[in-house]
Nucleic acid binder design. Structure first.
Lengths: 233, 233
DNA sequence: TCACATTTCTGAACATGTTCAAAAAACTTC
DNA sequence: GAAGTTTTTTGAACATGTTCAGAAATGTGA
Protein backbone atom coordinates (compact mmCIF):
# COMPACT_ATOMS: atom_id res chain seq x y z
CA UNK A 1 0.00 0.00 0.00
CA UNK A 2 2.98 2.27 0.39
CA UNK A 3 6.49 2.29 -0.95
CA UNK A 4 7.91 4.72 1.51
CA UNK A 5 10.16 2.52 3.49
CA UNK A 6 13.59 2.50 2.04
CA UNK A 7 15.84 0.24 4.00
CA UNK A 8 17.55 2.05 6.77
CA UNK A 9 20.44 -0.34 7.08
CA UNK A 10 23.14 -1.54 4.72
CA UNK A 11 23.60 -5.10 5.88
CA UNK A 12 21.33 -7.93 7.07
CA UNK A 13 23.05 -7.82 10.43
CA UNK A 14 22.22 -4.19 10.72
CA UNK A 15 18.61 -4.80 9.84
CA UNK A 16 18.43 -7.45 12.49
CA UNK A 17 19.92 -5.22 15.14
CA UNK A 18 17.65 -2.35 14.20
CA UNK A 19 14.58 -4.51 14.53
CA UNK A 20 15.81 -5.92 17.81
CA UNK A 21 16.28 -2.48 19.26
CA UNK A 22 12.90 -1.29 18.03
CA UNK A 23 11.05 -4.30 19.41
CA UNK A 24 12.78 -4.01 22.73
CA UNK A 25 11.97 -0.33 22.84
CA UNK A 26 8.29 -0.83 22.06
CA UNK A 27 8.07 -3.51 24.73
CA UNK A 28 9.57 -1.25 27.34
CA UNK A 29 7.50 1.72 26.25
CA UNK A 30 4.25 -0.21 26.51
CA UNK A 31 5.33 -1.50 29.89
CA UNK A 32 6.78 1.57 31.57
CA UNK A 33 5.78 4.59 29.55
CA UNK A 34 8.01 7.10 27.86
CA UNK A 35 9.85 8.87 30.62
CA UNK A 36 10.76 5.75 32.51
CA UNK A 37 12.08 4.01 29.44
CA UNK A 38 15.65 5.18 29.20
CA UNK A 39 17.84 4.74 26.19
CA UNK A 40 20.28 2.91 28.41
CA UNK A 41 17.59 0.49 29.51
CA UNK A 42 16.62 -0.19 25.92
CA UNK A 43 20.21 -0.78 24.90
CA UNK A 44 20.89 -3.00 27.86
CA UNK A 45 17.82 -5.16 27.42
CA UNK A 46 18.52 -5.46 23.72
CA UNK A 47 22.09 -6.43 24.53
CA UNK A 48 23.73 -3.66 22.57
CA UNK A 49 25.70 -0.61 23.54
CA UNK A 50 24.13 2.76 24.06
CA UNK A 51 25.96 4.23 21.12
CA UNK A 52 24.68 1.49 18.91
CA UNK A 53 21.09 2.34 19.68
CA UNK A 54 21.83 5.85 18.55
CA UNK A 55 23.36 4.52 15.37
CA UNK A 56 19.97 3.20 14.32
CA UNK A 57 17.72 5.84 15.85
CA UNK A 58 18.83 9.41 15.74
CA UNK A 59 17.04 10.20 18.96
CA UNK A 60 14.59 8.85 21.44
CA UNK A 61 11.84 10.67 19.62
CA UNK A 62 12.75 8.98 16.40
CA UNK A 63 11.86 5.69 18.00
CA UNK A 64 8.34 6.99 18.13
CA UNK A 65 8.39 7.74 14.47
CA UNK A 66 8.88 4.02 14.06
CA UNK A 67 6.00 3.44 16.42
CA UNK A 68 3.71 5.58 14.28
CA UNK A 69 4.67 3.54 11.32
CA UNK A 70 4.17 0.18 12.90
CA UNK A 71 0.80 0.88 14.44
CA UNK A 72 -0.37 2.40 11.19
CA UNK A 73 0.51 -0.78 9.35
CA UNK A 74 -1.37 -2.79 11.92
CA UNK A 75 -4.38 -0.56 11.71
CA UNK A 76 -4.35 -0.70 7.93
CA UNK A 77 -4.34 -4.47 7.87
CA UNK A 78 -7.19 -4.55 10.34
CA UNK A 79 -9.17 -2.03 8.30
CA UNK A 80 -9.04 -3.69 4.89
CA UNK A 81 -11.76 -6.24 5.68
CA UNK A 82 -13.98 -3.39 6.80
CA UNK A 83 -13.70 -1.84 3.37
CA UNK A 84 -14.82 -5.13 1.88
CA UNK A 85 -17.70 -5.53 4.21
CA UNK A 86 -19.09 -2.05 4.76
CA UNK A 87 -20.14 0.22 1.97
CA UNK A 88 -21.70 3.20 3.71
CA UNK A 89 -19.43 6.01 4.72
CA UNK A 90 -20.83 6.04 8.21
CA UNK A 91 -20.28 2.36 8.89
CA UNK A 92 -16.78 2.48 7.45
CA UNK A 93 -15.79 5.44 9.52
CA UNK A 94 -17.21 3.96 12.67
CA UNK A 95 -15.37 0.67 12.30
CA UNK A 96 -12.10 2.22 11.24
CA UNK A 97 -12.00 4.50 14.22
CA UNK A 98 -12.82 1.72 16.63
CA UNK A 99 -10.02 -0.32 15.16
CA UNK A 100 -7.62 2.55 15.48
CA UNK A 101 -8.26 2.86 19.19
CA UNK A 102 -8.02 -0.89 19.62
CA UNK A 103 -4.67 -0.88 17.86
CA UNK A 104 -3.29 1.86 20.06
CA UNK A 105 -4.73 0.59 23.31
CA UNK A 106 -1.66 -1.37 24.52
CA UNK A 107 0.31 1.85 24.39
CA UNK A 108 -2.14 4.10 26.17
CA UNK A 109 0.25 4.52 29.04
CA UNK A 110 2.83 6.33 26.99
CA UNK A 111 0.56 7.63 24.28
CA UNK A 112 0.58 11.07 25.78
CA UNK A 113 4.04 11.54 24.47
CA UNK A 114 3.00 10.43 21.05
CA UNK A 115 1.25 13.69 20.58
CA UNK A 116 3.37 15.52 23.01
CA UNK A 117 5.22 17.36 20.34
CA UNK A 118 2.34 17.37 17.93
CA UNK A 119 2.27 21.09 18.33
CA UNK A 120 5.99 21.71 18.18
CA UNK A 121 6.99 22.61 14.64
CA UNK A 122 10.61 21.77 15.32
CA UNK A 123 10.09 18.30 16.64
CA UNK A 124 10.62 15.26 14.43
CA UNK A 125 7.64 13.83 16.22
CA UNK A 126 5.34 16.50 14.91
CA UNK A 127 2.81 14.59 12.82
CA UNK A 128 2.30 17.65 10.63
CA UNK A 129 5.97 18.13 9.97
CA UNK A 130 8.55 16.96 7.53
CA UNK A 131 9.89 13.89 9.25
CA UNK A 132 6.45 12.42 9.67
CA UNK A 133 5.39 13.13 6.11
CA UNK A 134 5.60 9.53 4.87
CA UNK A 135 3.53 8.12 7.71
CA UNK A 136 1.10 10.98 7.40
CA UNK A 137 0.65 10.34 3.70
CA UNK A 138 -0.03 6.67 4.35
CA UNK A 139 -2.42 7.54 7.09
CA UNK A 140 -4.40 9.98 4.96
CA UNK A 141 -4.36 7.45 2.17
CA UNK A 142 -6.35 5.13 4.36
CA UNK A 143 -9.09 7.71 4.59
CA UNK A 144 -8.97 8.21 0.85
CA UNK A 145 -9.71 4.53 0.47
CA UNK A 146 -12.42 4.89 3.03
CA UNK A 147 -14.12 7.73 1.17
CA UNK A 148 -13.58 6.69 -2.41
CA UNK A 149 -15.03 3.25 -1.90
CA UNK A 150 -18.10 4.47 -0.07
CA UNK A 151 -21.45 4.64 -1.76
CA UNK A 152 -22.48 7.93 -0.26
CA UNK A 153 -23.02 10.68 -2.81
CA UNK A 154 -21.03 13.83 -2.16
CA UNK A 155 -20.39 17.22 -3.75
CA UNK A 156 -17.06 17.01 -5.54
CA UNK A 157 -15.44 19.83 -3.60
CA UNK A 158 -16.30 18.16 -0.33
CA UNK A 159 -15.31 14.76 -1.56
CA UNK A 160 -11.87 16.06 -2.43
CA UNK A 161 -11.16 17.39 1.03
CA UNK A 162 -13.01 14.80 3.03
CA UNK A 163 -10.13 12.32 3.46
CA UNK A 164 -7.94 14.98 4.93
CA UNK A 165 -10.78 16.27 7.07
CA UNK A 166 -11.45 12.82 8.42
CA UNK A 167 -7.79 12.36 9.13
CA UNK A 168 -7.82 15.54 11.20
CA UNK A 169 -10.94 14.31 12.95
CA UNK A 170 -9.31 10.99 13.72
CA UNK A 171 -6.38 12.85 15.25
CA UNK A 172 -8.86 14.60 17.48
CA UNK A 173 -10.32 11.30 18.56
CA UNK A 174 -6.89 10.03 19.46
CA UNK A 175 -6.29 13.14 21.46
CA UNK A 176 -9.52 12.46 23.34
CA UNK A 177 -8.51 8.86 23.91
CA UNK A 178 -5.18 9.92 25.33
CA UNK A 179 -6.95 11.92 27.98
CA UNK A 180 -9.57 9.28 28.60
CA UNK A 181 -9.11 7.26 31.75
CA UNK A 182 -12.58 5.72 31.88
CA UNK A 183 -12.84 1.91 32.27
CA UNK A 184 -12.31 0.11 29.00
CA UNK A 185 -12.10 3.52 27.40
CA UNK A 186 -15.88 3.58 27.33
CA UNK A 187 -15.95 7.30 26.93
CA UNK A 188 -13.87 7.30 23.82
CA UNK A 189 -16.01 4.67 22.18
CA UNK A 190 -19.12 6.63 23.05
CA UNK A 191 -17.63 9.78 21.62
CA UNK A 192 -16.77 7.90 18.47
CA UNK A 193 -20.35 6.69 18.15
CA UNK A 194 -21.75 10.12 18.63
CA UNK A 195 -19.33 12.08 16.52
CA UNK A 196 -19.52 9.67 13.64
CA UNK A 197 -23.25 10.08 13.69
CA UNK A 198 -22.79 13.82 13.91
CA UNK A 199 -20.37 13.89 11.03
CA UNK A 200 -22.71 11.82 8.95
CA UNK A 201 -25.44 14.36 9.50
CA UNK A 202 -23.14 17.27 8.89
CA UNK A 203 -22.10 15.76 5.59
CA UNK A 204 -25.71 15.43 4.59
CA UNK A 205 -26.33 18.98 5.61
CA UNK A 206 -23.25 20.27 3.83
CA UNK A 207 -24.29 18.47 0.68
CA UNK A 208 -27.44 20.53 0.49
CA UNK A 209 -27.19 23.02 -2.40
CA UNK A 210 -28.32 25.79 -0.12
CA UNK A 211 -25.20 25.22 1.93
CA UNK A 212 -22.85 25.71 -0.94
CA UNK A 213 -21.46 29.11 0.11
CA UNK A 214 -20.86 28.04 3.68
CA UNK A 215 -19.33 24.80 2.49
CA UNK A 216 -16.99 26.57 0.10
CA UNK A 217 -15.84 28.83 2.83
CA UNK A 218 -15.24 25.99 5.22
CA UNK A 219 -13.28 24.04 2.69
CA UNK A 220 -11.19 27.05 1.91
CA UNK A 221 -10.20 27.09 5.54
CA UNK A 222 -9.29 23.43 5.47
CA UNK A 223 -7.10 24.07 2.46
CA UNK A 224 -5.36 26.74 4.45
CA UNK A 225 -4.40 24.23 7.10
CA UNK A 226 -3.14 21.88 4.47
CA UNK A 227 -0.96 24.58 2.94
CA UNK A 228 0.50 25.35 6.30
CA UNK A 229 1.79 21.85 6.54
CA UNK A 230 3.36 22.06 3.13
CA UNK A 231 5.07 25.28 4.06
CA UNK A 232 6.94 23.73 6.92
CA UNK A 233 7.62 20.45 5.19
CA UNK B 1 -10.56 39.78 37.42
CA UNK B 2 -9.23 36.70 39.14
CA UNK B 3 -8.23 35.81 42.65
CA UNK B 4 -6.24 32.75 41.81
CA UNK B 5 -2.78 33.88 42.59
CA UNK B 6 -1.81 33.12 46.10
CA UNK B 7 1.62 34.36 46.85
CA UNK B 8 4.23 31.79 46.10
CA UNK B 9 6.87 33.23 48.38
CA UNK B 10 7.04 33.90 52.08
CA UNK B 11 9.18 37.00 52.18
CA UNK B 12 9.53 40.18 50.10
CA UNK B 13 13.04 39.16 49.24
CA UNK B 14 11.75 35.89 47.91
CA UNK B 15 9.13 37.61 45.83
CA UNK B 16 11.77 39.83 44.35
CA UNK B 17 14.03 36.93 43.49
CA UNK B 18 11.18 34.99 41.99
CA UNK B 19 10.22 37.85 39.74
CA UNK B 20 13.82 38.40 38.76
CA UNK B 21 14.22 34.79 37.73
CA UNK B 22 10.96 34.79 35.80
CA UNK B 23 11.76 37.98 33.93
CA UNK B 24 15.21 36.77 33.06
CA UNK B 25 13.78 33.48 31.88
CA UNK B 26 11.15 35.12 29.68
CA UNK B 27 13.81 37.35 28.15
CA UNK B 28 16.01 34.44 27.31
CA UNK B 29 13.13 32.35 26.06
CA UNK B 30 11.97 35.08 23.70
CA UNK B 31 15.52 35.53 22.53
CA UNK B 32 16.77 31.98 22.11
CA UNK B 33 13.79 29.67 22.24
CA UNK B 34 13.10 26.90 24.69
CA UNK B 35 15.77 24.31 24.06
CA UNK B 36 18.63 26.75 23.95
CA UNK B 37 17.58 28.44 27.14
CA UNK B 38 19.17 26.34 29.85
CA UNK B 39 18.32 26.56 33.49
CA UNK B 40 21.97 27.28 34.13
CA UNK B 41 21.89 30.21 31.73
CA UNK B 42 18.80 31.61 33.39
CA UNK B 43 20.33 31.27 36.85
CA UNK B 44 23.60 32.79 35.76
CA UNK B 45 22.06 35.77 34.00
CA UNK B 46 19.77 36.36 36.96
CA UNK B 47 22.77 36.16 39.26
CA UNK B 48 21.46 33.33 41.39
CA UNK B 49 22.48 29.74 41.84
CA UNK B 50 20.99 26.93 39.85
CA UNK B 51 19.43 25.42 42.91
CA UNK B 52 17.78 28.68 43.76
CA UNK B 53 16.01 28.80 40.42
CA UNK B 54 14.60 25.40 41.27
CA UNK B 55 13.51 26.67 44.62
CA UNK B 56 11.06 29.03 42.93
CA UNK B 57 10.12 26.96 39.91
CA UNK B 58 9.67 23.26 40.34
CA UNK B 59 10.81 22.59 36.80
CA UNK B 60 11.62 24.23 33.54
CA UNK B 61 8.12 23.52 32.40
CA UNK B 62 6.70 25.31 35.37
CA UNK B 63 8.32 28.46 34.11
CA UNK B 64 5.97 28.21 31.20
CA UNK B 65 3.01 28.00 33.49
CA UNK B 66 4.07 31.44 34.61
CA UNK B 67 4.32 32.49 31.01
CA UNK B 68 0.74 31.42 30.36
CA UNK B 69 -0.35 33.49 33.25
CA UNK B 70 1.53 36.60 32.33
CA UNK B 71 0.52 36.68 28.71
CA UNK B 72 -3.07 36.04 29.69
CA UNK B 73 -3.02 39.05 31.97
CA UNK B 74 -1.59 41.16 29.20
CA UNK B 75 -4.15 39.94 26.75
CA UNK B 76 -6.96 40.58 29.18
CA UNK B 77 -5.90 44.17 29.76
CA UNK B 78 -5.68 44.73 26.04
CA UNK B 79 -9.10 43.20 25.48
CA UNK B 80 -11.12 45.20 27.98
CA UNK B 81 -11.38 48.31 25.78
CA UNK B 82 -12.65 46.10 22.99
CA UNK B 83 -15.53 45.01 25.16
CA UNK B 84 -16.35 48.66 25.73
CA UNK B 85 -16.17 49.57 22.11
CA UNK B 86 -17.55 46.60 20.21
CA UNK B 87 -20.95 45.15 20.87
CA UNK B 88 -21.39 42.53 18.17
CA UNK B 89 -20.11 39.08 18.85
CA UNK B 90 -18.29 38.97 15.57
CA UNK B 91 -16.39 42.20 16.07
CA UNK B 92 -15.48 41.26 19.63
CA UNK B 93 -14.19 37.90 18.64
CA UNK B 94 -12.19 39.27 15.77
CA UNK B 95 -10.45 41.88 17.87
CA UNK B 96 -9.81 39.63 20.81
CA UNK B 97 -8.14 37.01 18.66
CA UNK B 98 -5.98 39.55 16.89
CA UNK B 99 -4.90 40.89 20.23
CA UNK B 100 -4.07 37.42 21.45
CA UNK B 101 -1.74 36.79 18.57
CA UNK B 102 -0.18 40.21 18.99
CA UNK B 103 0.44 39.47 22.64
CA UNK B 104 2.12 36.18 21.91
CA UNK B 105 4.10 37.36 18.92
CA UNK B 106 7.37 38.15 20.73
CA UNK B 107 7.51 34.55 21.86
CA UNK B 108 6.78 32.88 18.56
CA UNK B 109 10.23 31.39 18.47
CA UNK B 110 9.67 29.23 21.48
CA UNK B 111 5.91 29.02 21.32
CA UNK B 112 6.05 25.54 19.88
CA UNK B 113 6.91 24.27 23.29
CA UNK B 114 4.00 26.08 24.81
CA UNK B 115 1.71 23.54 23.36
CA UNK B 116 4.27 20.85 23.20
CA UNK B 117 2.76 18.95 26.01
CA UNK B 118 -0.75 20.07 25.35
CA UNK B 119 -1.53 16.50 24.55
CA UNK B 120 0.34 14.90 27.39
CA UNK B 121 -2.01 14.28 30.29
CA UNK B 122 0.88 13.95 32.72
CA UNK B 123 2.59 17.19 31.94
CA UNK B 124 2.15 20.23 34.15
CA UNK B 125 2.17 22.21 30.95
CA UNK B 126 -0.96 20.52 29.69
CA UNK B 127 -3.46 23.36 29.36
CA UNK B 128 -6.32 20.94 29.94
CA UNK B 129 -4.81 19.50 33.07
CA UNK B 130 -4.83 20.20 36.75
CA UNK B 131 -1.86 22.48 37.08
CA UNK B 132 -3.12 24.81 34.41
CA UNK B 133 -6.64 24.95 35.79
CA UNK B 134 -6.42 28.46 37.23
CA UNK B 135 -5.07 29.99 34.06
CA UNK B 136 -7.56 28.04 32.01
CA UNK B 137 -10.44 29.28 34.12
CA UNK B 138 -9.30 32.85 33.70
CA UNK B 139 -8.86 32.35 30.03
CA UNK B 140 -12.33 30.92 29.55
CA UNK B 141 -13.69 33.69 31.70
CA UNK B 142 -12.53 36.17 29.12
CA UNK B 143 -14.69 34.47 26.54
CA UNK B 144 -17.59 34.49 28.95
CA UNK B 145 -17.26 38.22 29.15
CA UNK B 146 -17.00 38.34 25.39
CA UNK B 147 -20.23 36.40 24.91
CA UNK B 148 -22.33 37.72 27.75
CA UNK B 149 -21.79 41.32 26.78
CA UNK B 150 -22.54 40.82 23.12
CA UNK B 151 -25.81 41.89 21.65
CA UNK B 152 -26.24 38.86 19.44
CA UNK B 153 -29.27 36.77 20.27
CA UNK B 154 -28.55 33.13 20.94
CA UNK B 155 -30.37 29.97 21.95
CA UNK B 156 -29.74 29.43 25.63
CA UNK B 157 -28.15 26.03 25.24
CA UNK B 158 -25.67 27.39 22.76
CA UNK B 159 -25.04 30.49 24.75
CA UNK B 160 -24.07 28.37 27.73
CA UNK B 161 -21.41 26.42 25.90
CA UNK B 162 -20.22 29.14 23.58
CA UNK B 163 -17.50 30.59 25.82
CA UNK B 164 -15.88 27.21 26.18
CA UNK B 165 -16.28 26.53 22.49
CA UNK B 166 -14.65 29.81 21.60
CA UNK B 167 -11.84 29.06 23.99
CA UNK B 168 -11.21 25.78 22.21
CA UNK B 169 -11.36 27.60 18.91
CA UNK B 170 -8.85 30.16 20.11
CA UNK B 171 -6.52 27.34 21.10
CA UNK B 172 -6.78 26.08 17.56
CA UNK B 173 -5.86 29.49 16.21
CA UNK B 174 -2.81 29.57 18.43
CA UNK B 175 -1.85 26.17 17.17
CA UNK B 176 -2.11 27.49 13.64
CA UNK B 177 -0.05 30.52 14.53
CA UNK B 178 2.67 28.36 16.01
CA UNK B 179 3.07 26.61 12.71
CA UNK B 180 2.79 29.77 10.68
CA UNK B 181 6.05 31.11 9.31
CA UNK B 182 4.58 33.58 6.82
CA UNK B 183 5.82 37.18 6.92
CA UNK B 184 4.16 39.19 9.64
CA UNK B 185 2.09 36.13 10.33
CA UNK B 186 -0.19 37.20 7.49
CA UNK B 187 -1.62 33.74 7.19
CA UNK B 188 -2.77 33.58 10.75
CA UNK B 189 -4.49 36.92 10.52
CA UNK B 190 -6.20 35.86 7.34
CA UNK B 191 -7.33 32.63 8.94
CA UNK B 192 -8.69 34.60 11.87
CA UNK B 193 -10.67 36.84 9.53
CA UNK B 194 -12.12 33.93 7.68
CA UNK B 195 -12.88 31.66 10.58
CA UNK B 196 -14.48 34.41 12.60
CA UNK B 197 -16.75 35.10 9.69
CA UNK B 198 -17.38 31.39 9.38
CA UNK B 199 -18.18 31.03 13.03
CA UNK B 200 -20.51 33.95 12.87
CA UNK B 201 -22.45 32.28 10.07
CA UNK B 202 -22.41 28.94 11.83
CA UNK B 203 -23.85 30.51 14.92
CA UNK B 204 -26.62 32.03 12.86
CA UNK B 205 -27.26 28.70 11.25
CA UNK B 206 -27.18 26.84 14.54
CA UNK B 207 -29.64 29.29 16.01
CA UNK B 208 -32.24 28.29 13.45
CA UNK B 209 -35.01 26.28 15.14
CA UNK B 210 -34.72 23.66 12.42
CA UNK B 211 -31.20 22.99 13.56
CA UNK B 212 -32.16 22.25 17.12
CA UNK B 213 -31.55 18.48 17.03
CA UNK B 214 -28.18 18.81 15.37
CA UNK B 215 -27.24 21.59 17.71
CA UNK B 216 -28.21 19.59 20.77
CA UNK B 217 -26.13 16.71 19.60
CA UNK B 218 -23.12 18.89 18.93
CA UNK B 219 -23.34 20.53 22.30
CA UNK B 220 -23.59 17.17 23.95
CA UNK B 221 -20.27 16.34 22.41
CA UNK B 222 -18.73 19.55 23.64
CA UNK B 223 -19.92 18.72 27.12
CA UNK B 224 -18.16 15.40 26.81
CA UNK B 225 -14.87 17.13 26.20
CA UNK B 226 -15.44 19.37 29.14
CA UNK B 227 -16.13 16.40 31.39
CA UNK B 228 -12.93 14.76 30.26
CA UNK B 229 -10.98 17.67 31.58
CA UNK B 230 -12.74 17.49 34.89
CA UNK B 231 -11.96 13.82 35.16
CA UNK B 232 -8.25 14.34 34.99
CA UNK B 233 -8.20 17.49 37.09
C1' DT C 1 19.03 41.66 72.00
C1' DC C 2 19.14 36.78 71.87
C1' DA C 3 17.57 32.21 70.62
C1' DC C 4 14.87 29.75 67.59
C1' DA C 5 12.29 28.85 63.28
C1' DT C 6 11.60 29.62 58.63
C1' DT C 7 12.98 30.88 54.27
C1' DT C 8 16.38 31.64 50.91
C1' DC C 9 20.37 30.22 48.69
C1' DT C 10 24.43 27.41 47.34
C1' DG C 11 27.24 23.94 45.16
C1' DA C 12 27.97 19.42 44.44
C1' DA C 13 26.10 15.16 42.81
C1' DC C 14 23.11 12.36 39.88
C1' DA C 15 20.39 10.61 35.77
C1' DT C 16 19.67 10.64 31.20
C1' DG C 17 19.74 12.17 26.23
C1' DT C 18 23.32 12.81 22.99
C1' DT C 19 27.89 12.94 20.54
C1' DC C 20 32.11 11.13 18.84
C1' DA C 21 36.58 9.02 17.94
C1' DA C 22 38.07 4.79 17.23
C1' DA C 23 37.89 -0.43 17.41
C1' DA C 24 35.70 -4.55 15.54
C1' DA C 25 33.11 -6.80 12.15
C1' DA C 26 31.23 -7.32 7.67
C1' DC C 27 31.41 -6.58 3.01
C1' DT C 28 33.62 -5.72 -1.72
C1' DT C 29 37.00 -6.07 -5.14
C1' DC C 30 40.71 -7.91 -7.23
C1' DG D 1 42.23 -15.10 0.19
C1' DA D 2 44.26 -10.40 0.99
C1' DA D 3 43.75 -5.44 0.90
C1' DG D 4 40.76 -1.88 1.22
C1' DT D 5 36.23 0.09 2.18
C1' DT D 6 32.03 0.43 4.49
C1' DT D 7 29.12 -0.66 8.26
C1' DT D 8 28.47 -1.83 12.86
C1' DT D 9 29.65 -1.43 17.56
C1' DT D 10 31.73 0.31 21.65
C1' DG D 11 32.72 3.14 25.66
C1' DA D 12 33.90 7.29 27.30
C1' DA D 13 32.77 12.11 27.52
C1' DC D 14 29.58 15.98 27.55
C1' DA D 15 25.36 18.96 28.41
C1' DT D 16 21.47 19.76 30.80
C1' DG D 17 17.35 18.93 33.86
C1' DT D 18 16.84 17.76 38.55
C1' DT D 19 17.70 16.69 43.53
C1' DC D 20 19.42 17.44 48.08
C1' DA D 21 21.98 18.26 52.33
C1' DG D 22 23.33 21.94 54.50
C1' DA D 23 24.98 26.99 54.87
C1' DA D 24 23.50 31.77 55.02
C1' DA D 25 20.09 35.07 55.58
C1' DT D 26 15.84 36.53 57.20
C1' DG D 27 11.96 36.67 60.13
C1' DT D 28 9.72 35.87 64.90
C1' DG D 29 8.88 35.90 69.79
C1' DA D 30 10.65 36.43 74.47
Amino acid sequence: MSENQKKQTKTPKGEQTRTLILNTALDLLAERGYEKTTMRAIAEKAGVSLGNAYHYFKSKEHLIQAFYHRTHEEHLVASLPVFEREKSLKARLLEVLRLKIATLEPYHEFAGVLFKTAADPHSPLNPFGHDAAPVRRDSIELFETLVSGAQTRLPTDLKAELPYLLWLYHMGIILFWIHDSSPKRARTYRVIDRTVDLIDRLITLASNPLMRPLRKRSLQFVAEIRDLELAEG
